[in-house]
Amino acid sequence: MQSRPFGRIGRSVGEIGFGAWAIGDAWGQVDDADAIAALHAALDAGVDFIDTADVYGDGRSERLIARVLKERGGERPFVATKAGRRLPQQTVAGYSAENLTAFVERSLRNLETDTLDLLQLHCPPTDLYYHPEVFERVERLVEQGKVRHYGVSVERVEEALKAVEYPNVASVQLIFNAFRPRPAELFFRQAQAKRVAVIARVPLASGLLSGKFRPDTRFEASDHRQFNRKGEAFDVGETFAGVPYEVGLAAVEKIRPLVPDGATMAQLALRWILMFDAVSVVIPGARNAQQAQANAAAAALPPLSDEVMQALAGIYDEHIRPHVHQRW
């Protein structure tokens, strides 16, 4: 596992991390034993960055992480969490000092730690980025020792560009994959210029880029890939990266011949993301130990050739771009 600097905070992390949404909820049934095995497998493979949120299973994801870290002992990995989506309605007023403090203190209890390594505002409303007082409230949490560093998780590139104008925003998390490459056009240059860490989420487009799905694949009722196809519960860009399912399946068939011998399509998709130096860490999810091991193994793939990168760009332009490029 190669490491990359995590922005300007003076710490490096392995370039493939662990996204802990799937072990919380909204991805179908994942029992505790599988979730714990996935976390152990990732950490055994050299993963040292875990991303979670207070709403993943109403704290379940955070609590499972704490349990595994207690079992393992030794040096803790870098654990990032998020706050804000517990609000009954997304408004700027909801990000009050009182609410932020309550969210942070709950995550501290769930994670069984005294200080959060990284607190991320969890896809707040766009208007929040124009309210510096919210960022000042997070600064107070840093001063109080409850938070070491803070950043944002965004839906739109425009939100990311606005967020990095705040000098103490240490990281930006956003969707970035071969079906959502727009951040590389402008935002990555801004992030590098300001030494802001970039966390790439939804790297496999909710599994579309694993190449394992078919038109007749069925998802559990509790899986967002079933209940959020049209953005019924949250931003549709979080489900299949906003790509219409059948459109994505057709594009995947174009990608299949590009997969290197001995690798999976998911590993190709992760390696594509790592071709961009601005990315600090990519956070694929895993529902079991085998998926976690395979994700980590993608770090060992050699760099993709110019021909493969151009072919993937061509597939995006032809099949995917009209559906997503200007939306996020």
Rank of each mutant, 00 (worst) to 15 (best):
L161C: 12
Y129P: 00
A205R: 03
L111E: 02
H122Y: 11
S171L: 11
L111K: 01
A170G: 05
P132E: 05
D117R: 04
G207P: 00
V157M: 13
D117W: 00
F213Y: 15
E112F: 06
T113C: 13
V202M: 00
Q120V: 08
E143L: 13
A160S: 08
P132C: 08
A170F: 02
A200H: 03
R140V: 11
G145V: 14
H149N: 11
R156D: 09
R195S: 13
Q120K: 08
S171F: 07
R214N: 10
R214E: 12
I199V: 15
Y166M: 07
L118K: 06
V152F: 08
V169N: 01
V198E: 01
L161H: 08
D114W: 07
V172P: 01
V157E: 03
K146R: 15
V157W: 03
V198G: 05
V172M: 07
I199E: 04
F213N: 06
R180L: 13
V169D: 01
V138M: 09
A205I: 02
Y130M: 13
F176I: 05
L174K: 03
L174R: 04
H122K: 07
V152E: 07
H122P: 04
S153E: 06
F179E: 01
L121G: 01
P124V: 09
E112K: 11
Q144P: 03
E112C: 05
V138L: 06
A178D: 02
S153R: 00
L141W: 09
E159T: 08
R201Y: 09
D114R: 10
H122F: 13
A193M: 14
N177E: 02
K146C: 11
I175Y: 00
V196I: 15
V138A: 05
E165A: 11
E133H: 12
E165L: 14
C123A: 15
E159V: 11
E155H: 15
R201E: 03
P183I: 03
R201F: 07
L186G: 10
A193K: 14
A184M: 12
D117V: 04
C123V: 15
V198T: 07
R214W: 12
P215H: 03
E155P: 02
E143G: 11
S210A: 14
Q192F: 10
R156A: 12
E139H: 15
V152C: 09
A160P: 06
E143R: 13
F176P: 02
E133S: 10
E139T: 10
A197P: 05
V164H: 06
L128Y: 07
E158A: 15
Q144G: 12
E159M: 09
A200T: 07
